[in-house]
Amino acid sequence: MLLFATRRFGLALLILIVAVTAMFLMIRAVPGDPVQIMLGPRATPELQARLTAELALDQPIWKQLLIFYGNLMQGDLGIDVFSGRSVTEIVFQQLPHTLWLILSSITWSAALGIALGAYAAAHPNTLIDRVTAAISVSFVAAPAFVVALLSLLIFAVNLQWFPAIGAGEGFWGRLNHLVLPAFAIGLSWVGYIARLVRASMLEVMGESHIRTARAFGINERRVVMVYALRIAILPVVTVIGVGMGFLLSSAVFAEIVFARPGLGKLVIDSITTRNYPIVMGSVLISTGLFVVSTALADLINAWLDPRARTAI
């Protein structure tokens, strides 16, 4: 297990290094003077000279890369051209908003998805099972930002049940503002998780320890809820870990549609104002987050299921 963990995180680190280097080179490969691009129409000769020195653009490329990594190790992703604040600080100020949104989305959808999937597996080929299956497929198919827009139209603009914009104040205010975006992000996951749990549940139900439990006369409800479900929800862990990037992408759209603060809004606003250091900083941090969560999911999976440890 320790060996697996070391190797898995070694791979994650390697991937991160390649990804960060690739992104660094990509920024440098863009034609034109990066300082000019970053400053845009605001460029004055003094500002240009200062930024060129700050970014070490007068140095050879390998040295620039070294300096970039040196700064990265110290958590320095550069300075926002506008406000002069550190990019790391700005990004980490917005990150919690996005993480809360993702967490609440996945919590409700996983709970409902697992319940639906378990119920469908316990009653296979009944009408309810088929309806669940059809609904699952339809849910999987709905892109989050379209659901977000339609639910904004229906529940916020027309019915006015929920607020349309912002993140809210106080506990209940925040919760109230979370409902629609979390609904939009989570909807496609309900169906996905339900199908996953149903499939793995059916597999687990056929295994011998379930037969043994039944033979001991344990009632069916307890067999399903305790003995089968516990094992059947394992794949959900992996899927959520790997789906982190997908969740993050949906969160970007939900934040725009509902005008919520967060990483997505930060990036889009920065693109429109051509504030490149912030765009790159956000992309770097979200990529890091994604790589770590994938590795963690693999690790949890390996911990729960020893057979997965040889896969790397």
């Binding site: 991160l16 990509m26 993050l248 490149y276 765009v279 992309v283 979200s286």
Partner: peptide, 23 residues
């Protein structure tokens, strides 16, 4: 495989936004 894993390590929309911001 390392190349594939690296490309997959960018969240799609974030990658798209980075590329759009650049080009």
């Amino acid at each position: 495989m390392l190349l594939f894993d690296t490309i997959r390590s960018f969240p799609t929309v974030m990658f798209a936004l980075a590329v759009v911001a650049l080009v």
